[in-house]
């Protein structure tokens, strides 16, 4: 079997707070194959961006341990100079906030041109300009020749995100990392940007790491899904398995917290609380147990690790078997009452 496009092995990304380092990504292993969309989901603060930045080598003061193989080459802690051959070229990234991700004092055309100057140094200027106009057309920006000379503030958020996508795909990347590409946009624009991304991905045949906390986006785009909580992966499976047979309590809580229009009751399943801050993350035992206090102490595992429970379906911990939502159990009790 051929090597995966991206192979992350035991990645640990730590930030220094005061005297000590705290891991925001803790022992994460992942693969992404060519032409595959891997979604990474999890609440805000669970380490998704920290993971993406580690792959791109964009952290400036983090400690990165473990391996990141891109096309077989370990790019973890690669010197900037060597990393720059990949970035913007075979490996590119789309950012969350289009309003801040572009240089406010530079024309849109020049910002796209920069990525060509850096990686296609032998392309003459006139040809680059022609290509940039084509790119703008490809990301469905109306009046591309006009937009070429416009500044970011003259464009809407959705248009700016298209420009950022144009930058990311300019050199036909083999791996595209999109960090919450639609979170900052209006709902109607979100759908358009997602459609565009899906089209482009099919054209480019590239691998995609799609970071999101929107399960609707996952259902639409992803082939496989990794669920992250507090820096760890708690469950990985292909998208059908994950949606139809979620095992980890965190995954189940995420899935049941998608508000369904016809069933307001579903909100009952939302697990309360937030991801604890980096400094206050429990580092021993299960990181999630604090958020499900109704599960008995002795049901938890001491060192929950990932288990493959069916081919390609990994779940952290075995005691998901004991897990239930409080209102589920109530329902069960109601059933019992009804039966008796």
């Amino acid at each position: 079997m051929s090597n995966p496009l991206l192979e992350i092995k035991n990645l640990k990304t730590s930030f220094r707070i005061g005297e000590k380092y705290y891991a925001a990504v803790d022992d994460v292993s992942l693969n992404v194959n060519e032409n595959e969309v891997l979604a990474i989901v999890g609440e805000s603060g669970s380490g998704k961006s920290a993971l993406a930045f580690s792959v791109m080598g964009l952290h400036n003061r983090a400690k990165i341990e473990g391996d990141i193989f891109f096309k077989g080459k370990n790019i973890a802690n690669l010197p900037t100079k060597e990393m720059n051959k990949f970035r913007g070229n075979e490996l590119s990234m789309i950012f969350q906030d289009p309003l801040t991700a572009l240089n406010p004092l530079m024309e849109v055309g020049r910002q796209i041109d920069e990525v060509l100057i850096l990686h296609k140094s032998n392309m003459p200027k006139s040809q680059r300009k022609k290509y940039i106009i084509e790119l703008l057309e490809r990301v469905e920006i109306p009046r591309p020749k006009h937009v070429y000379n416009q500044f970011p503030h003259e464009l809407s958020g959705g248009m700016r995100q298209r420009v950022i996508i144009a930058i990311a795909i300019a050199n036909q990347p083999e791996l595209l990392i999109a960090d919450e590409p639609t979170t900052a946009l209006d709902v109607t624009i979100q759908a358009q940007i997602l459609d565009l991304m899906r089209e482009l991905k099919d054209d480019l045949n590239s691998g995609v790491v799609l970071i999101t906390h929107d399960l609707g986006v996952v259902a639409e785009m992803a082939d496989r899904v990794a669920v992250m909580y507090a820096g760890e992966i708690v469950e990985i499976a292909d998208v059908d398995t994950l949606f139809n047979n979620p095992q980890h309590p965190y995954t189940r809580s995420l899935l049941s917290s998608i508000p369904l229009l016809d069933d307001a009751q579903d909100k009952l399943h939302v697990i309360h609380g937030i991801v604890p801050s980096l400094k206050h993350l429990p580092r021993e035992g299960c990181r999630f147990s604090a958020r499900i206090p109704w599960i008995e102490e002795d049901a938890h595992e001491e060192q929950p690790t990932l288990h493959e429970i069916s081919p390609g379906h990994f779940v952290r911990c075995t005691c998901y078997k004991h897990f239930y939502f409080p209102d589920e159990s109530k329902e069960d009790q109601n059933h019992d009452v009804a039966k008796s």
């Binding site: 964009l58 900037t80 720059n84 970035r87 913007g88 590119s92 004092l105 920069e114």
Partner: peptide
């Protein structure tokens, strides 16, 4: 600023990031 990260993500060397984006702005 975020756009500095964008510049680095394009593969711009530090010299260019500073001259074209940080100092200029």
């Amino acid at each position: 600023r975020d756009f500095i990260i964008t510049a680095r993500a394009k593969g711009a060397p530090e010299r260019r990031v500073y001259n074209r984006h940080i100092f200029r702005n």
